[in-house]
Design a protein around this nucleic acid. Structure first.
Lengths: 257, 257
DNA sequence: GTATAATTGTGTCATAACGACACAATCAAA
DNA sequence: TTTGATTGTGTCGTTATGACACAATTATAC
């Protein structure tokens, strides 16, 4: 039995398609204008911002479900996706938000609808190449946009907590996961890489020492091109040497930042 | 409506008490005889070993549920408990194991029983002081014992995967979580601490360099006592300086091991 | 054209951390 | 009292780190 295309049809009879009690939320991160951005949705009729989320089909792997949500919002496939935490407080859902929003969309649900039951939420973070993403709002939201992680206001329910936990996880995994590789375009400059590290670590780094250390890891290939266009000396372009990068990550890029 | 005390009564009508689709498994770790141990259960009638697990009550926090399972198996409260991963493959459950075991225990369930539905499992790891634990088997198991993590055989379902993921997580968090504090007794020797690190990292460390580095962190207090009894020079006892320990962990005990 | 301002590439130096190693002190058992 | 194993502590050469300075390069302004 295929899942209907219309969100409204799915929501009305969610118990037919989805695993009960389990939802997921995605913290989709990108890097643009030297800033780390997160993809957020503006819910219809409520002006509330939320992280993109979804549910798990009855026979679907949770990982696959997250990839599906990701594809629906960004058009991207084969994305770096990592589960980072489960949010399981019994009172974390706020069914009023859904109810209000859905009601104004024209969907009326009974009080005992599956959607108003308790849900735990599995948090996933995704790292994407900003330039390749076209954000799509879903049927229940009016906007789907990138926001600077430092300029995120109040989000729905516990989504601020989810976002913060995701950012903390990324910071802790910086030496063990290919964070730089997945957030940056194929070719990037050393200052861009440094800015990415600085944003994630929330900490200024010395330009020369950063260059020295990063070079010493041996995970970068310096290309023969430079990035022209800036009103200053043109920086060299680099790309990752995936062979050595993967190898180095297994041991962890040693040393503290 | 209180939960019945009899496991059999709970299992037969689990849908009355528990959140559907969600289970949890606990990797309970201790340190004894210079070895890291994990608590495992031997299921009745099947001779299969499994990690202690349980379900989440309808109005219960997932964290609280894990603490409850922990208390039931070890008698301990206020334990260091960390969620580390969700196992969400659709085919990870193996209802035959449960069915067989329960049947021989005298509990017969319909094919459409809640227990045979799909469950995702939230993995928690707990660090306990071995000396304070009295392992209790539950109503569905004959034994509840400590096993050396290097001598664990085949476990039920995906429990080997769960255990390995827990150990990997502990290794990665060694510089950020109070692993030593929670696994060791209040007073311990430097060689014991080193052996703990070596076991978790699965790597031999130089005795003198370990001592130097650990001392440099400033997180240990050397006591005026020594551990007598060994047939050799009596090592000093240490305890953690929690003030400095907590502070150091926030930044991460820098440097690679 | 040429000067300008900002940014990038690279080097130095003193200090701290690290890995490899040796030797003396101490304890229980023989 | 001797012995064997283990622990406490120090040394030394090498490497990594943090704090800096200066030259090279680029589009823009003049």
């Amino acid at each position: 039995m295929p899942v209907p295309h219309q969100l409204s049809a799915i929501i009305k009879e969610g118990e037919k398609w989805f695993l009960p009690s389990v939802s997921l939320d995605c913290v989709i991160l990108g890097f643009h204008d030297n800033q780390v951005k997160v993809l957020v949705l503006k819910l219809k009729h409520s002006n509330v911002w939320a992280l993109p989320g979804g549910f798990v089909l009855k026979e679907e792997d949770t990982e696959t479900a997250a990839a599906r949500v990701l594809r629906e919002r960004t058009g991207l496939q084969n994305i770096f996706l990592q589960q980072f935490h489960v949010f399981g407080a019994p009172n974390r859902s706020d069914s009023n938000i859904h109810r209000k929003s859905l009601l104004q969309t024209g969907i009326e649900l009974n009080n005992d609808s599956w959607l108003f039951q308790r849900f735990i939420s599995i948090g996933y973070y995704a790292l994407v190449d900003f330039a390749h993403v076209t954000p799509f709002p879903d049927e229940n939201s009016t906007e789907c946009v990138w926001k600077d992680i430092h300029e995120i206001g109040s989000l729905m329910m516990d989504h601020n907590e989810i976002l913060n936990k995701a950012l903390e996880t990324v910071r802790l995994q910086l030496n063990h996961q290919p964070i730089g590789y997945n957030l940056l375009p194929q070719k990037f400059t050393m200052p861009e890489l440094q800015k990415l590290y600085e944003t994630i670590l929330d900490k200024a780094l010395d330009r020369r020492n950063f260059h020295r250390k990063m070079t010493a890891f041996g995970i970068l290939k310096r290309l023969k091109e430079t990035r022209k266009g800036g009103a200053h000396r043109a920086p060299f372009l680099y790309s990752f040497d995936m062979r050595k990068y993967q190898k180095a990550l297994k041991q962890g890029l040693n040393g503290g930042w």
